[in-house]
């Protein structure tokens, strides 16, 4: 079963981090990612550029509307994700809890909806 682990964090807080803190965070992420690659859970994952680079698109009445920024203003923003393979939700929770960002932000776990190829 595949799950998407979405990493939410407060961008404003992250900007205040010192260089040393940032590099140790990166090192932790590197170690975590290698760990789940070796265990076979890893299916994909990426860090996202900050929401300042985000664009939101809607199509209404056939017209494409592109606007600056994320869809909703929230305290925490999506900062990255992992796609993992896990036996069940408990295993996914266990992996999500080891994501370094879980200590400062939060991780949302969503099961992937597998739609059969037609």
């Amino acid at each position: 079963m595949q799950y998407l682990l979405m990493i939410y964090h407060a961008e404003a807080e992250e900007k205040k981090m010192s260089e040393a803190e940032t590099s140790s965070m990166h090192a932790e992420y590197g170690q975590f990612t290698r760990g789940i690659m070796e265990s076979g859970s890893y299916k994909g994952g990426n860090a996202l550029q900050p929401t300042a680079t985000a664009t939101t698109v809607r199509v209404r009445d056939g017209k494409t509307l592109a606007t600056d920024g994320p869809f909703a203003e929230t305290r925490e923003q999506l900062g990255g994700y992992y796609l993992i393979d896990a036996e069940h939700l408990d295993e996914a929770i266990g992996i999500a809890a080891r994501i370094p960002g879980a200590k400062v932000g939060s991780i949302e776990i969503r099961p992937i909806w597998l739609v059969p190829a037609t």
Binding site: M1, E87, H88, L89, D90, I109, P111
Partner: peptide, 9 residues
């Protein structure tokens, strides 16, 4: 759908 396990933890 989220496959909450059916087991004794």
């Amino acid at each position: 759908d989220a496959r909450i396990p059916y087991r004794v933890p």
